[in-house]
Design a binder for these strands. Structure first.
Length: 742
DNA sequence: GGTGATCGTGCGTAGA
């Protein structure tokens, strides 16, 4: 082992937890040349090394959270790590597992602790070796753990017999999702199999609501979870919001399919020109909201490099690009040997470490304050300020401009979100769903694991004590009957639940292991090289142009059976015509803040001159329509209702008006209703008088409620309840109706 | 003069 620096010995650190680590682990720390343990590593030792507590480690990106969890865990395993798998690490991404495997292997090698990784890209040979002589640490995805339950159900108890720790990385990515629900169920089923609890450690960078995260980590006993928080606190933030005017679309040009000389409208050029000027020569991330915009800007910026006779510095990065193209881009950014900018979707919000970047650019309305915060965390490490530039386009106004353009809702929503970001508020994760789709999966998986289960046992394992605690016994019986009718289940003469004909088929296909739904995608190939995949929902013709991988292509052939599109390089690409006002579920707080921005007169210092103009226009139009005093206005044949509340309230209100025979369109912040204002007011008054509407009265008007993977098997009434819990807010809508009428 | 509405994650086995 290497030298022991005496003056800056890690054992000299303040709280002195270092000495509790195993001597070999201490030696590894010295060998790394670390002067001291990081804050989170220091505080994590005591609660984890005891081997009995559930722990959440919350600290910023690249703060050494993995080591914080595994220095104490490895200390416990250093003398003996055999007999069975002794610690499980669960990661949301294969790439993250590969990263952590490299890091952990270095630590564990000298300790004689075997480290195994297990996911879809790991060879059968490695997997069978672990099954033959299980030991040490297992790094695995939730899906592969699911596969273990189904394929190795009877061997699981011995495989995990001596399990002492379960570590969950990127905990926040699981909270409130189908995948997170699946994970909770799997963790619970591990403990049922072993007939004892196994301490859990959750790792995360951004956990706003710690009690909620703790309850997710250990359902029913969240208050007993030890919270270790070592965030350095908010550093300096440099912020700018840049406004742009977008010309009204030239219909003639759009109809004829003709494009401006450079193939793009000038508006994108303005944003692109500023991005090019400010970012080139350094390392930055550009978040562009959709894969389509990522491709658009990556292509534009690459061509600007060409024009300036520079080597390309801009690369696209999104989930449909092939692994090779993504890894090339990530490696180039991480290496920092030459200037590299990645134009990306949410792919670079979390996960693998690409190192700190100079700045973050956000093009278009951010999806949420929470994701903005996460994105910001990628810049300004090592003491420097975090830099965020937000680019926003608003349409040039004409006599017929729609109300949302007149009110500059994109700009105002972005200002509202930045204001909330500055007060340190961000959206809590979704909660309240029943997750019936994942209950289908977990029930079938439980049956496959044991070869069959009694209904009472299944209810107790999954609902009573498991993650589906909100499902009553009565509902469960109804649910089982529905699955029986659809041949997912059958029942033996002694009442044991078995897989039915359909159940057998879906469980035995590998696509069963994931809890989330996926769309059918085409593979894009150019001269034998796979560029990536793309969901294609409309017919593609030979000769069609498209942009992908940051370049322009022409379709040569479409092979529908093989789901392959063959491409050749092309000089021009199609451009999107419209940009949605916002994406995803906007929170109540954001819309309340928007109203405050409209009604106020302060001008945030981070607005550039054009953005200030647009803000002034928005406020003038807000006043002109009298929206400070009222929330219903009539324009032409449309009545506009402003509930100043989030998407759940707006959606509920729209359904309630539809239930009264009105034709309603939801445009984010505004509901547009066809008809007379008096009719709309009458409907709202009736709604207020009758009290909060019942779910069933509203979901009747929803065309498609089956949105999750196995929803098609769930009885209609249960599905409606799940839909209402996820997407509606009846109390909020009732209060909003009262406010609107005031 | 008026469309369209996000992103991302994952996978076993047999047989050639």
């Amino acid at each position: 082992m290497s030298s022991h620096p005496s003056s800056s010995d890690p054992s000299g650190s303040a709280s002195g937890s270092f000495h509790r680590l195993h001597p070999k682990v201490q030696r590894w720390v010295w060998s790394q040349g670390w002067k001291e343990l990081r804050g989170i590593q220091e505080v994590a030792i005591a609660p984890i090394i005891g081997g009995t507590q559930d722990v959440i480690l919350s600290a910023s990106t690249a703060s050494g959270k993995t080591e914080a969890a595994f220095l104490p865990i490895c200390s416990r395993l250093a003398e003996d790590s055999g007999g069975s798998v002794r610690a499980i690490y669960i990661g949301p991404l294969k790439a993250l597992i590969n990263d952590q495997f490299e890091r952990l292997d270095g630590l564990c090698e000298g300790l004689g602790i075997p480290v195994h990784r297990w996911h879809g890209d790991v060879s059968q040979g490695h997997k069978s070796r672990l099954l033959k002589s299980p030991a040490g640490i297992l790094l695995i995805t939730p899906e592969s753990l699911e596969a273990l339950f189904i394929r190795q159900g009877s061997a699981l108890a011995s495989l995990f017999s001596g399990l002492e720790h379960i570590v969950i990385d990127e905990l926040h990515a699981f909270i409130g999702t189908e995948r997170g629900c699946q994970l909770r169920s799997l963790l619970h089923r591990v403990e049922l199999t072993l007939r004892r609890n196994v301490p859990r450690v959750g790792l995360s960078a951004t956990l706003g609501d710690m009690p909620l995260a703790a309850e997710f980590l250990r359902p029913g006993a969240g208050e007993q979870v030890t919270l270790c928080n070592a965030d350095s606190g908010g550093g300096e933030l440099l912020l700018q919001l840049r406004g742009y005017r977008k010309r009204a679309p030239d219909v003639e040009r759009l109809v004829s399919g003709e494009e401006s000389e450079e193939g793009l409208p000038e508006d994108e050029h303005d944003v692109g020109a500023h991005l090019f000027k400010t970012l080139r020569g350094t390392h930055n991330l550009v978040f562009a909201n959709s894969r389509r915009n990522v491709e658009l800007y990556a292509d534009l910026l690459r061509r600007m490099c060409e024009q300036a006779q520079l080597p390309n510095e801009f690369f696209p990065h999104h989930g449909n690009l092939s692994k090779e193209l993504r890894e090339e881009a990530e490696a180039a950014l991480k290496a920092k040997q030459r200037p590299v900018n990645l134009v990306c979707t949410t792919t670079l919000e979390m996960g693998i470490d690409v190192g700190a970047v100079q700045s973050i650019a956000q093009v278009g309305v951010p999806p949420s304050v929470a994701s903005l915060r996460q994105r910001l965390g990628r810049s300004g490490r090592k003491g420097g300020p975090a830099v965020l530039r937000l680019y926003l386009q608003e349409a040039e106004l004409t006599k017929t401009s729609p109300l949302t353009d007149q009110l500059r809702v994109r700009l105002i929503q972005s200002v509202a979100m930045l204001e909330l970001l500055l007060t340190n508020w961000f959206e809590p994760p979704a909660s309240g769903a029943f997750h019936f789709s994942t209950l289908v999966q977990q029930l079938l998986s439980l049956i496959a694991q044991h070869g069959g289960v009694k209904a009472g046992e299944a209810f107790s394992a999954l609902c009573q004590e498991g993650p589906f605690a909100r499902v009553s016994r009565e509902d469960f019986v109804h649910f089982l009957r529905g699955l029986g009718q659809r041949e997912l289940l059958s029942q033996s003469s002694d009442g044991t639940l078995l897989l039915g004909r359909v159940g057998e088929r879906i469980v035995n296909h590998y696509s069963f292991y994931a809890a989330f739904a996926s769309v059918e995608e085409f593979r894009l190939v150019a001269s034998g090289r796979t560029l990536g995949t793309m969901p294609i929902d409309q017919p593609l013709f030979v000769g069609t142009y498209l942009i992908f991988g940051g370049r322009r292509w022409r379709v040569l052939a479409v092979q529908s059976d093989e789901k392959v599109v063959e491409l050749e390089p092309a000089p021009s690409g199609r451009v999107p015509m419209f940009e949605p006002a916002s994406v995803g579920g906007v929170h109540d707080r954001v819309r309340e803040q928007m109203r405050a921005v409209y009604a106020g007169d302060g001008v945030p210092r981070y607005l550039d001159a054009r953005a200030q103009e647009l803000l002034a226009e928005a406020r003038a139009n807000f006043q002109r329509w009298g929206l400070a005093e009222r929330s219903i206005i009539t324009s032409g044949r449309e009545v506009h209702v402003f509930p100043w509340a989030g998407d759940a309230v707006a959606h509920t209100l729209a359904l309630a008006l539809q239930a009264r025979g009105l034709s309603v369109e939801t445009l984010g912040a505004v509901l547009s209703v066809e008809g007379m204002q008096s009719d709309v007011e009458g409907a709202l008054r009736a709604l207020v008088a009758e009290g909060p509407p019942r779910d069933e009265a509203l979901t009747r008007h929803v065309a498609n409620m089956a949105l999750e993977k196995h929803d098609g098997f769930v009885p209609e009434d249960l599905l409606a309840r799940d839909y209402a819990a996820r997407y509606l807010d009846v109390q909020g809508a009732w209060r909003a109706a009262q406010r609107v009428l005031q």
